[in-house]
């Protein structure tokens, strides 16, 4: 047994014990943050020692330190890929798709017939493997970010539509009657009552769609892209067995995903503080 394997088991047991110890402390606020961080750190350490201890070929599973080095080394490439895929492809598609879905939801909300038809249809489409349309969009809109934007628009549109329509529909009846007793106009009711009360649903849709947008933009690049972009890099570096670079890209995607999700949650907390789920 070599030293790294021994270290691996020591870290495992120590990490486990510390976590159990810490979790017995009640009501400490810093723990909410500290325990998961510690857990993540322990996993990284274990990964490192396991790779070194078992002599795993770095081509198959590079140790975290190698990934970190590669990350620090290729910041410029990572940045170019990030802009190409996430800003140009994912974000533009996300904004367009979600915006269009909310507007459509408001538009069809007036017509019960459309709502009854579109809601089951939208639910159905949300479950379909729309990523599969990526090759078609690449054919139509070219290799560059426009095709990625298009696939993201299609991917986020229906989940967002379904959520918005449900939100607009679930308005409390007595509040709606109240607006009627004030003789409020359609727009007044929309902006003062229905949109605010639909916000929890809209944010739920925005959160689901943020992950979908990342997936769509990256996977679409597997079907064709200029020589930059995260999906392109991942597929080409995998072909060259340069897995440290692939992991670095995945790290960027994960980080961007978490940050964006966190940002939306933060805005949600600010705007829907009144919702029962946010009251402690």
């Amino acid at each position: 047994m070599n030293i790294f394997l021994v270290l691996f088991f020591i870290v495992w047991i120590l990490g486990w014990l510390i976590n159990i110890r810490l979790s017995l402390i009640k009501n400490a606020k810093f723990l909410r943050f500290f325990i998961p961080t510690l857990f993540g750190f322990v996993i990284l350490l274990m990964w490192e020692f396991l790779v070194l201890g078992l002599n795993i070929n770095p081509v198959l599973l590079p140790p975290p330190t190698a990934i970190a080095l590669k990350f620090a080394d290729s910041l410029d490439i990572l940045w170019i890929d990030f802009v190409q895929t996430l800003i140009k492809g994912a974000l533009s598609g996300y904004i367009l798709g979600c915006g269009a879905a909310i507007l459509t939801a408001i538009a069809i909300d007036k017509f019960n017939f459309l709502k009854r038809g579109l809601l089951p249809f939208g639910n159905f489409v949300s479950a379909l493997p729309i990523v599969g349309m990526a090759p078609i969009f690449v054919m139509w809109f070219g290799f560059d970010w426009e095709s990625k934007c298009a696939i993201v628009v299609v991917m986020v549109f229906f989940p967002m539509l379904v959520n918005s329509v449900q939100g607009l529909e679930l308005v409390d009846h007595s509040r709606q009657d109240l607006m009627k007793t004030y003789n409020a106009s359609y727009t007044q009711t929309l902006f003062k009552l229905r949109l605010p009360s639909a916000l929890p649903f809209i944010f739920n849709g925005l959160k689901i769609c943020s992950t979908l947008a990342l997936i769509g933009a990256i996977v679409a690049e597997f079907f064709g892209s200029p020589i930059k972009g995260m999906g392109f890099r991942i597929s080409s570096e995998v072909g060259r067995f340069a897995l440290d670079m692939v992991w670095a890209e995945i790290f960027v995607a994960a980080l961007a995903g978490c940050l964006f999700y966190g940002l939306i949650s933060l805005i949600e907390k600010q705007l829907t503080f009144w919702h029962p789920s946010n009251q402690k």
Partner: peptide, 15 residues
């Protein structure tokens, strides 16, 4: 707007 209406549940806007 000749009348004011008070509902069963307070019907206040939580936000």
């Amino acid at each position: 707007r000749e009348y004011g209406y008070v509902f069963q549940a307070a019907g206040l806007y939580p936000w």
